[in-house]
Design a protein around this nucleic acid. Sequence first.
DNA 1: TCAAAAGTGTTCGAACTACACCCATGT
DNA 2: ACATGGGTGTAGTTCGAACACTTTTGA
Lengths: 257, 257
Amino acid sequence: MSQQHGHGAQARLAVSTVIFALSPDVDGDGVERPSLRIPLVRRLREPGAGRWALPGGWLPVDESLEAAAARTLHETTGLAPKYLEQLYTFGEPDRSPDERVVSVVYWALVHSDEVERAVADENVQWFDEDELPHLAFDHHEIIDYALWRLRTKLEYSGIAHALLGERFTMAELRGVHEAVLRKRLDPANFRRTMEASGTLVDTGERLAGTRHRPPALYRFDASRTPAAPPPTDAAAHDAAHASSASHDAAHAASASA
Amino acid sequence: MSQQHGHGAQARLAVSTVIFALSPDVDGDGVERPSLRIPLVRRLREPGAGRWALPGGWLPVDESLEAAAARTLHETTGLAPKYLEQLYTFGEPDRSPDERVVSVVYWALVHSDEVERAVADENVQWFDEDELPHLAFDHHEIIDYALWRLRTKLEYSGIAHALLGERFTMAELRGVHEAVLRKRLDPANFRRTMEASGTLVDTGERLAGTRHRPPALYRFDASRTPAAPPPTDAAAHDAAHASSASHDAAHAASASA
DNA sequence: TCAAAAGTGTTCGAACTACACCCATGT
DNA sequence: ACATGGGTGTAGTTCGAACACTTTTGA
């Protein structure tokens, strides 16, 4: 029952992404606390023309959800995400004034290394996490949710490195945590916690040019990641690292009774 | 760019639900360990006709995602879910042989009180969690993921009660945890952990008719639930309790650059 | 030699585990 | 009275927070 609606009266499927990156370190010496930044695009057509919105687009019939999110991200920022994960699917019937649109939303983390190359013109701008403009639709709620996810996940998972470059100091890594969690962390305890996680590798190199004692440079070792969740491969919610394809799996609607 | 595809070449949107309930307690005295059961429907048409699949259907244009999941659940089991939450959206292009189908999957917990009334005929059957039949599409992966979610969430959230009735003993609640987590729990420590969570209320009543000392009956107090996540109201992933509407929010595809 | 961050050691208390033990009821 | 789960007490352990302290560099 209630199955055949014909292909005409369907909701349209969109994919959007909440992209996070760190503000460039002003001094380059790690003294300044970095802040979280999010790129938004200006809507050029109705509904919501002129307002800022999340980068996204309609889902092409032959493209996977994750691939669409990655493409969107690249088209907007010019960068490749180091981390990409499905966030939630928003689909209230009344969210878009004209037609029914269901949006599968992803969230992404981008290297600070490459942020300098980021696109930014009059229609694409990066906003500070706590200085967001008036947004189209309910994109503000979506971003709030993505921020909550990021903060929650940071506390039990080693994703902070995805916002840094290949090599980083312990202080830089701590700076990411402090910026995201919005609170100071004890350097001694932070170091021990990270070392205990076993996901960091001391490269042997040290960062010269600081005003004082040169800190060790670490890199993240993905192979040492704890245990990944059992489900659909990279399991979307609590695993892994972008790029790895096939988060998604098949399914088709089934008859009821 | 890459925006207008026309309304013809779209993916179709389906909603499915993984429903969990406890097997009826055989003896009624809580001695038997209950087990998790999942209702499946037999597909009547191609593709995958004859195979078992998750209850679900096409998304009507004017129905919210959650409402569609709840309706599906009711049509299949004849019951109302006590807990309903979005799980993940599956959308690989090749999952369904004929056309592109994107499925928004929910998971639900159902009262054991009402499970007796559950529908079950030749096209709707309840299967034990570890005795699933050959499933259509990748529904097995989806169920595995839902099971992982259930187990993970049980450990930090008080959702176990949603599988029981209004009033329950501490041993029954522990039985749910043991059945879901597949391991024995220390009765003393379990009791203290639950009492410390502050979400249980002693009704003052006691369960008579047991072979020995009558245990106290508790009920769950939703108002004492810890702090709900900030985002979109009930916040889908880590909050809340079904029924409460408006998980979802608006969004429409936006132009890029 | 001094400032400042890198990095180490130690103590404290909360939270969880294991397990001994008493309590109340039906038979 | 006794078997059986209901329910309480308590000691050991683990883990993170707090903070004193030593090390290493540039200026």
